[in-house]
């Protein structure tokens, strides 16, 4: 059974091989005329102020949380979708209830302003 997945592993190895090869080539072939000015953080020509390791908008965190919640639901749907033909109406109603509960959560977050972006 595991042999079926060997080509996937081969492709991942080749893909990362190409990636690392390109990175190493760019480090070997590239010119080396480093100055301090080149190595400073780019900030439109100004002297950089502060650090980028700062706090950022909580909204991005909210998006990530919502994503995890909904993405797990989507993952549940895949095996269901493959087998629906054999499982029939029962499976449909099961998923219907599942999506209904999901929609309750969705509207709760909607009304609470979880998807607002100001």
């Amino acid at each position: 059974m595991i042999e079926t997945y060997v080509p996937l592993i081969v492709m991942l190895v080749v893909g990362f091989g190409v990636g690392f090869l390109f990175m190493l080539l760019s480090e070997w072939l590239g010119a080396r005329r480093t100055t301090d000015g080149k190595q400073t953080t780019y900030e439109s020509g100004m002297i950089p102020r502060g650090t980028a390791r700062d706090r950022f908008s909580i909204k991005f965190y909210m998006v990530a949380m919502s994503f995890i919640v909904f993405d797990i639901e989507v993952v549940f749907m895949y095996p269901w979708a493959v087998q629906l033909g054999t499982l029939g109406m029962t499976a449909f109603w099961t998923m219907f209830v599942f999506v209904l509960i999901l929609f309750v959560g969705y509207f709760y977050e909607y009304k609470k302003g979880g998807f607002e972006w100001d």
Partner: peptide
């Protein structure tokens, strides 16, 4: 682009700075 200088900012996290493009390209291929 291969022959251009590979500038890594002083404040950057060197390891992840190099890893990120590898990850992008390798995944796009994989």
């Amino acid at each position: 682009l291969f022959l251009k200088e590979d500038i890594v900012p002083k404040n950057a996290d060197k390891f992840f700075h190099s890893l990120a493009p590898v990850l992008s390209l390798s995944i796009a291929i994989a």
